[in-house]
Design a protein around this nucleic acid. Structure first.
Length: 545
DNA sequence: TCTGGGGTCCTAGGACCC
DNA sequence: TCTGGGGTCCTAGGACCC
C-alpha cells in the first residue's frame, strides 16, 4: 500500500459486446451476448442490457438463451476486432505512463508514480477523467471504468464499484472504508471454493475476514493463500505493477460438440492441437521441455498427464507423438468431452536439434485453425441476430441514442431501477437477421461503414446543467463519476429516496450530483452540489440542493 | 442442451542428490 | 539401526482469473 493513490486500473466495460454494438447500429440498446453460440458454448460477455435479464459471463449459453428475451443477439466472438480496439486503448495508456501492466485484452494497471504525475486525489482524478474521455473518443465510444488507489487491490475494486463508465478514486487512508463492507467474494483470489469455506465459518464481509486470526486462515487455506487473505483483508498489498511478463506455458484445447470415443479420431485431434501449440511456440520464438495433455471425461472429471524431456522442442510432430503416448495412459472408453495439449517449462531460445525441420508442405497440410489476426467471419462462426417486433415500444429499456439527456444521461442499466423487459415480447416476431449485417466488410476499431458512429458523444460542448453556478468550470465527465468515499450512491439517504444518481460535474472543486426519480411514473430530477467532496474522505461533504 | 479457452499459481508427494 | 535434512525436479490436481 502506497502513501498516495498512484495505481490506476482500467477495465473496458463489457468490451466484446460493446465493440459489437459500436460496429452494428442495430444492436445498440439491445441485449447482446458474445460467446460460444453452439451447443456447449458459454457466455464470454453480456452487454449491460443482457445483464438486466440475468445473463452473465461464464454462464452456459443455453441458460442465457432461456433468460433473455426475443430480440437478443447471440454472436460469436470476433477476436481480431477486439484486439484492434484493445491496441488502440493500450497505446493511450502507454502515453500516460511507461509502466503499464496489461492483465488481459480489456484490462490494465498503470503505475502513475513512474511518470511523475501529480498524485494528489485531485491530480489523479484529472488524469483518470482525461483518460476515460480519450478512450471513448479513440475507440468510437467504448467506455472504460477506472479505479485509482494506493494498491492494485483497491484500484481494481475501485474500477468495479461504479461500472459501467465509472470512476472511483480511493484517497490514501480511505482504503478500509471501501474494503471492509464488501462481500469477501470481491477480493481477488476469492473464488467459489474459498468463499464457501469462509461462509461456513460465518465470514461474509472483508471486515469480518480481517477479524480472523492468521493461524485460522493458514489452517483453512495453506500458507500462501491464507497469508494472502490475511493481508488483503487489511488492504496490505504491495504487489508492484509489472510491465512485461514472459509466458510460462502455451496450450490449446477443444470441447467437442459430442463426446468422442473413437481412438483414431482422438489421436487426430491431438495432432491438430499439437500443431496449433507448436505453431504458436514457433511464432513466439520459444521452445518447451514439458508436454501436457488434458482430458475431460463425459462426466466432466478432468485428468492431466505430463512428460518432461531433457531437450526443449517446438516440433509439432514430436509434441503430437508425446501427447499420443500420454493419452494411452487414460481410459477414454466412456467418452471424451474435451482434449487439450500444452507445452511448458519454456526456454526462450530455440534448441538446434535434428527434429526442427519440417517436410515440405507440412503446414499447409495441417488446418491449424484461424490465425490470431484473421477475421472470424468464417461460415462456422455463426451469427444470429433476431429483432423483436417490440422495438421502440413504450415501456422498453430507454435507448441511449434517443435519450434527451444526451451526454449527461448514463447508460440505461446504470440506473438503479433495472430496465424493464420490453412489453409484449410474447407475440414478437423474429426476423432472422438484421438487414444491416448483409455483406458488410470486416469492421475494425476505426470503421468507415456508413452506419458507424465515429466517436463518443460530442465532448467539446456539453450542455451546462442548470444546477451549476454560472461561470463554473465544467469538466465534461463521461458518464458516471464517483468520488469515493466521500459520496456513495446506495449509502446516501438521498439515494434511497431517488433510486439513481450520477455525478456529472467538474470533479475538480465543485461536483454536482444529479438524481433521477423512480422511472414509473417518471419522478423528478433533483440536483445537488458540494465543494471538493473528493478531498475530504473522513468528513462527509455537505451536499446542497 | 449445464459447465469455453487461455492462462497463472499453489500444494503435496515421490524421486533423487549431497 | 526409530525412522536426518535440506534442496531441486517432476507430476497431478485444484483454485482462480479474464
Amino acid at each position: 500500500m502506497r502513501a498516495e493513490p498512484s495505481i490506476l486500473h482500467v477495465d473496458l466495460d463489457a468490451m466484446f459486446a460493446a465493440v459489437e454494438q459500436r460496429d452494428k447500429v442495430s444492436l445498440r440498446g439491445k441485449p447482446v451476448i458474445v460467446g460460444g453460440v453452439a451447443g456447449r458454448g458459454v457466455v464470454a460477455t453480456a452487454s449491460y442490457e443482457a445483464r438486466a435479464f440475468g445473463a452473465r459471463s461464464a454462464m452456459p449459453m443455453a441458460q442465457a438463451r432461456r433468460r433473455c428475451p426475443p430480440g437478443t443477439a447471440y454472436l460469436s466472438p470476433r477476436f481480431a476486432a477486439y484486439k484492434r480496439t484493445s491496441e488502440v486503448v493500450m497505446a493511450l495508456l502507454a502515453e500516460v505512463t511507461p509502466l503499464v501492466e496489461q492483465v488481459s485484452i480489456d484490462e490494465a494497471y498503470l503505475d502513475l508514480a513512474a511518470a511523475g504525475h501529480d498524485l494528489s486525489p485531485r491530480g489523479v482524478t484529472e488524469i483518470a477523467m482525461r483518460l476515460k474521455r480519450e478512450i471513448a473518443a479513440a475507440t468510437g465510444g467504448i467506455t472504460g471504468s477506472v479505479g485509482v488507489a494506493s494498491s492494485k487491490l483497491l484500484a481494481k475494486i475501485g474500477s468495479e464499484l461504479r461500472k459501467p463508465d465509472g470512476l472511483t478514486v480511493v484517497p490514501a487512508g480511505g482504503e478500509l472504508a471501501v474494503l471492509h463492507p464488501l462481500p469477501v467474494g470481491r477480493l481477488g483470489g476469492v473464488g467459489p471454493a474459498t468463499e464457501q469455506r469462509l461462509h461456513r465459518s460465518g465470514v461474509r464481509t472483508v471486515g469480518q475476514l480481517a477479524e480472523v486470526p492468521l493461524e485460522d486462515l493458514v489452517d483453512w487455506f495453506g500458507t500462501a493463500h491464507g497469508g494472502g487473505l490475511f493481508r488483503l483483508a487489511r488492504a496490505d498489498d504491495d504487489r508492484p505493477v509489472v510491465g512485461e511478463r514472459e509466458a510460462k506455458s502455451v496450450s490449446a484445447e477443444e470441447t467437442f460438440e459430442v463426446d468422442l470415443t473413437d481412438p483414431v479420431r482422438l489421436n487426430r485431434e491431438l495432432d491438430l492441437l499439437s500443431a496449433r501449440v507448436a505453431g504458436r511456440l514457433r511464432s513466439g520464438g520459444i521452445t518447451g521441455r514439458t508436454v501436457n495433455i488434458k482430458v475431460r471425461h463425459h462426466d466432466f472429471t478432468t485428468v492431466t498427464r505430463a512428460i518432461t524431456r531433457d531437450q526443449p522442442t517446438d516440433d509439432p510432430r514430436l509434441v503430437a507423438q508425446l501427447a499420443r503416448r500420454l493419452l494411452t495412459e487414460i481410459d477414454t472408453s466412456g467418452g471424451i468431452r474435451l482434449l487439450g495439449v500444452g507445452v511448458s517449462t519454456l526456454a526462450d531460445f530455440a534448441q538446434d536439434d535434428l527434429f526442427s525441420s519440417f517436410p515440405e508442405g507440412f503446414w499447409s497440410a495441417v488446418p491449424a485453425g484461424p490465425a490470431e489476426d484473421e477475421e472470424l467471419d468464417h461460415p462456422f462462426m455463426r451469427e444470429e441476430v433476431s429483432i423483436a417486433a417490440s422495438d421502440g415500444e413504450p415501456g422498453g429499456p430507454p435507448h441511449p441514442a434517443t435519450n434527451p439527456g444526451g451526454l449527461l444521461a448514463p447508460p440505461a442499466t446504470a440506473l438503479a431501477g433495472r430496465p424493464t423487459p420490453p412489453a409484449g415480447d410474447s407475440g414478437a416476431q423474429l426476423v432472422p437477421a438484421a438487414p444491416d449485417l448483409a455483406g458488410r466488410p470486416a469492421s475494425g476499431a476505426v470503421d468507415s461503414d456508413a452506419e458507424h458512429v465515429p466517436a463518443a458523444p460530442d465532448l467539446a460542448g456539453p450542455p451546462v446543467p442548470e444546477a451549476l453556478d454560472p461561470g463554473e468550470r465544467l469538466v465534461p465527465a463521461v458518464g458516471q463519476v464517483e468520488a469515493f468515499p466521500a459520496w456513495r450512491p446506495g449509502q446516501d439517504v438521498r439515494h434511497e429516496e431517488y433510486g439513481a444518481g450520477w455525478v456529472w460535474g467538474s470533479g475538480l472543486g465543485r461536483v454536482t450530483v444529479r438524481f433521477e426519480g423512480p422511472r414509473t411514473p417518471p419522478g423528478p430530477v433533483r440536483t445537488f452540489a458540494a465543494d471538493d467532496p473528493l478531498l475530504s474522505p473522513a468528513d462527509p461533504p455537505d451536499w446542497r440542493e
